[in-house]
Design a protein around this nucleic acid. Structure first.
Lengths: 179, 179
DNA sequence: ACTGACATGTAACTTGTTACATGATTCG
DNA sequence: CGAATCATGTAACAAGTTACATGTCAGT
């Protein structure tokens, strides 16, 4: 049985807490949003696989048919094994940056507007991340401390990209310049 | 016919130059490496689709059965249409950052080593990008200027992530500290 | 002759998305 | 009692990866 990255993400979350599929789904929309994304339609079948592989265990059943899972010892060992492996180089796929590559096909004003909008989008995301970071207490547990560290990567990324978009917009002539 | 992002990438490249499938493949390994990735097994079928949709045209046949394509007027119009649309928020998936999220499961020394290695990987990528940037002439054509602008995003991203990894490593206690 | 780069394609599989489908519980 | 949220699942499809398969041409 080979485990996908999604599988490892679920396993990692279940190593810290007992969670339902629904709660796991929410983690991908919230705490893990800057790191990994997954929808419930991918999560439920993956949970079934992990359970079949003995890496997670169904602990309790709650209201509305909800099922709570926790990682088994083998599951925790699997996460550690995964973490100890050197990661492969990631394949980069950014549609937003790809568009920039082809912006020479647009009128300078339109290209300029694209970059300004890009800067705004990055600043918006940065504000979201900053707001999340502001709510993390200073005396948090280990798992939360590490979520803060990974969130910092998102913050610095958005900040760098916002500054890049500003720089890029300045380097493009525009008829809309007012300064 | 809906066109995938890969289709738009191919169309964009073929809007500037007449290229073969093989040359397109190389672009994803080189000029587009920091932006989008695709392998030949995905490219050849996609070229067939674009041709069937009348967005590209097979122009000349070369040695070793190579086929050269160029974008049609409809193809160029399609790229511009795509560029004018507001991009959707991108789904983020970084296995390397996901690991950081779960680093609390490792001994502090191992977590520290992971972050140091991360910093080194980002610095290595940064050096690659810097080397590429250094070879772009100052008097380049429009398409090259925009490739330089998108490359700058890669450079700033790697720089920000290298600095983040340093910061993160410092914030983790390690038995290997010599300073 | 051999090696490596050039060159194109297909098949099987994995991963991820979108849409469909259903039902329980809570709050106003 | 109606809407929102909670809660789980499946099916059809799209996108991407890995492996298979084949053949050409240039340089040594």
């Amino acid at each position: 049985m080979t485990i996908s990255t999604l599988g490892h993400a679920l396993l990692g979350l279940l190593a810290a807490d007992e969670l339902t599929g629904y709660e796991l789904t929410q983690h991908f929309d919230r705490s893990l949003a800057h790191v990994w994304s997954a929808s419930h339609s991918q999560i439920y079948p993956e949970l079934a696989k992990l359970q079949a592989a003995g890496l997670i265990r169904h602990t309790e059943s709650g209201p509305r048919g909800s099922k709570r899972y926790s990682a088994t010892d083998e599951g925790r060992a699997e996460v550690r094994r995964w973490l100890a492996q050197p990661p492969q180089p990631e394949t980069i796929r950014s549609e937003r940056l790809l568009r920039v590559f082809f912006l020479w096909m647009l009128a300078p004003d339109d290209a300029h507007a694209y970059l300004r909008a890009e800067a705004a989008r990055h600043r918006e995301q940065l504000a979201n991340y900053d707001a999340i970071a502001a709510h993390i207490p200073a005396d948090a547990d280990a798992a939360t401390c590490w979520s803060r560290i990974s969130l910092e990567a998102g913050i610095r990324h958005e900040r760098a990209m916002a500054e890049w978009a500003d720089w890029a917009a300045e380097s493009v002539p525009s008829g809309n310049v007012r300064a």
